[in-house]
Design a protein around this nucleic acid. Structure first.
Lengths: 216, 216
DNA sequence: GTCTATAGAATGATAGAC
DNA sequence: GTCTATCATTCTATAGAC
């Protein structure tokens, strides 16, 4: 009896993760209201009542999914530093953002949905964590401009262009695929997209792309 | 009695338009499932049953909203022609897309929502009208590249970048506003955004922006 | 054409047995 | 911890009076 809590130490977290994975996919495809806890439970392979045992409400589950996505964004957020070469820093950031769009398209969609609907759940994150990160990166870009290392533009619009363009390949993957004769991007298509995005943005701010594109 | 159908000749269309305007706003804010016909009817100032008199089902109303948005997109679609100067043509297209993002943010959001969820309603439009338009514009851009008038990139990625970036200011307006200290963009901010977007993209493909930016 | 009242279906959440 | 049965609510759509 007393050792019952020593068995299957990670079962609880494994099950929660399975539910979160299912929820990310279902929320991305159907939206918060369009997704039902029944769909998520079915996709996770558990009864609906069991889902409610791990996540008491639909909103608590959704909130966790959105926060997980936000953490993934932030992992790519430390790509550039004031002391780095701007071309390498921006290229590395674009590389990481494109990789995330390919690896986590559903997370990107849930985030986009949340923001488009006025960010009812993650407004605090926008105002604190994202605001602080954005402000600090704008300062880095501005310092590069002040030092004459890149063209003069408002840093915020450069950041928005990078976010919008890289996330387009996740959020609008259905449209991109339809225009690609119904075929999903293969390795070569992803590499070509990443190359062209980096080329246009770097050349756009006066940074010529050489052989070193900040790959990691 | 017999002249009853001569009175208020446009009342029906005016009422349908009021419902469509309300529907665009509510669908943009809450998504297809999140929006209720009751909310739309309230916002349009009519009883719910009256809404169902003009639009028999929620889906029929939504479909009309999406098609209206698509028509707006296409109005900006004839901005560039093979015989035009590429810098002027692309600048004009970006100008128009930015104006639409400012004038019709809700339409852009409904479109984004629809595509993100797999385009269940407008898949036919993607495969026919959008595919044909995109193919023809890719050919125009490719001809400019072949003539050495701009840098070599895959035209589709240039188009996606223009779409993604211009629509970001509509779809993510809540995030943009939060990062703008909670203030919506004023005239100057919109002009600055449009200027920087054009600057980066045109310079990015080797087209220097002069005084003539294709404004209309 | 308009509107009240309601039917009919779907869904989030829980009680309670195991 | 797990799962069946079910409650309570919400929403689309319509019947039928005016």
């Amino acid at each position: 009896m007393t050792n019952g809590n020593f068995k299957k130490p990670s079962t609880r977290n494994q099950k929660k993760q399975a539910i979160l994975d299912a929820a990310e996919k279902i929320f991305a495809e159907y939206g918060f209201k369009g997704a039902t806890t029944q769909m998520i439970a079915d996709f996770a392979g558990i009864p609906k009542a069991n889902l409610h045992y791990y996540f008491p409400t639909k909103e608590a589950l959704y909130s966790q999914v959105v926060q997980n996505i936000f953490d993934i964004w932030l992992e790519a957020a430390d790509s550039f530093d004031q002391n780095m070469d701007p071309a390498i820093a921006l290229a590395s950031y674009i590389n990481k953002k494109m990789e995330i769009s390919r690896a986590h398209p559903n997370g990107s969609k849930v985030w986009a949905n949340e923001v488009m609907h006025g960010a009812p759940i993650i407004q605090d994150y926008l105002e604190t964590t994202l605001k602080e990160w954005t402000t600090s990166r704008e300062a880095v870009i501005q310092s590069w401009i002040d030092e004459g290392r890149m063209d003069k533009i408002d840093p915020k619009h450069l950041l928005y262009m990078i976010w919008a363009t890289t996330q387009h390949y996740a959020d609008f993957v259905h449209q991109v695929q339809t225009l690609n004769d119904g075929q999903p991007f293969d390795d070569g298509a992803w590499q070509a997209a990443t190359r062209d995005v980096k080329k246009i943005i770097l050349a756009g701010v006066g940074l010529q792309t050489g052989g070193d594109d900040g790959d990691h």
